[in-house]
């Protein structure tokens, strides 16, 4: 039980879960964009983003510059929070619960416990039940997704491979999650126990997914989405919405590309609209192919 600051309402644990997962419901069918300045945040909001991710360096720059990537400066995040009326998210390192506490203290709307930053704990993720602010986490398969939900994640996203402009990993991860769910829903009840063991996920959550046929929380695509077609591809594969990181502000005409990707996510099943919004977008981000030689961020997280 925790008291909420401004209005004195007390939310029980069930209500807290409903509210955390509920905000993700409101983001569905939308695009969440990485921004590094208040000006970019305003461009994103104006283009129709349903939320922004405030960070100091987009993943493409983290890749190029290297070094330890940490939570962004709270002052910089607050300036972005002040610049827009849509929800603002920010990233903490995997397992770095103090960075998460700091983000909660400044009133961030959602925390991304992200493999894009350098992990702080190679065994444990943040115990997200301890927070009133909701968390989104990355996943590559159903087991990883349900482990994060067990830790209290209120929203999921594919990991993809951030900062590459290459959608191949996001497709791999989305397909894997959907394949796992399809497999699960066709299983005999007796087989669920072993399946839970195999994918290293809590049995109760495995059973819930088997019964409902979908994840317990909203699931977005992330990592490598660079074009309206990429965004629509992920939507047709069954995700609820799309994160675009480096893809927008590393491209030739960010405002136009942002508007186009927003349209593509709403009209993902309408090739005519997709053709229209894909015209004359200028240069896409250059892109780095995902190869074993590169640092694979998606392998971070346990």
């Amino acid at each position: 039980m925790a008291e909420n600051g401004s209005n004195g309402h007390v939310n029980g644990n069930e209500d807290k879960t409903l509210l955390k997962r509920g905000l993700a419901q409101m983001l569905k069918g939308g695009v969440i964009m990485d921004v590094v300045t208040p000006e970019q945040a305003r461009i994103a909001e104006d283009a129709g983003a349903c939320a922004v991710m405030a960070l100091e360096r987009v993943p493409a720059d983290i890749r190029v510059q290297g070094g330890v990537a940490r939570m962004s400066d709270p002052d910089m995040i607050e300036k972005i929070m002040a610049a827009v009326s849509i929800p603002v998210m920010a990233k903490c390192r995997i397992g770095h619960f103090v960075e998460a506490q700091i983000l909660e203290a400044i009133g961030i709307d959602y925390i991304d416990e992200s493999e894009v930053l350098t992990p702080a704990d190679e065994e444990n993720h943040v115990n997200k039940h301890k927070f009133n602010v909701p968390f989104v986490c990355g996943c590559r398969n159903l087991g990883e997704a349900l482990r994060r939900v067990a830790e209290g994640a209120a929203m999921l996203r594919t990991k993809g491979e951030a900062g590459t402009g290459d959608v191949v990993e996001a497709v791999r991860h989305a397909r894997q999650v959907m394949r796992d769910i399809r497999k699960l829903t066709s299983m005999d009840e007796d087989e669920l126990f072993t399946f839970a063991k195999e994918i290293q996920a809590p049995y109760a959550l495995v059973k819930e997914v088997a019964t409902n046929g979908h994840l317990p929380v909203v699931n977005f695509a992330a990592g490598g989405v660079a074009t309206p077609a990429d965004a629509a591809l992920m939507m047709q594969l069954g995700v609820d919405g799309v994160f675009v990181g480096s893809g927008i502000f590393k491209s030739g005409d960010p405002a136009k590309r942002a508007r186009a990707i927003v349209q593509a996510v709403t009209h993902y099943n309408d090739p005519k609209v997709l053709a229209e919004v894909s015209r004359n977008l200028g240069e896409a981000m250059v892109g780095i192919n995902v190869t074993p030689e590169n640092t694979i961020m998606a392998k971070r997280g346990w």
């Binding site: 909420n4 600051g5 401004s6 209005n7 309402h9 939310n11 209500d15 409903l18 509210l19 509920g22 905000l23 929070m81 929800p87 909660e104 009133g107 961030i108 709307d109 959602y110 009133n132 602010v133 909701p134």
Partner: peptide, 10 residues
């Protein structure tokens, strides 16, 4: 009512 942290059920 404020930001997400101020969301509530009543």
């Amino acid at each position: 009512f404020g930001r997400q942290i101020d969301s509530f059920v009543a």
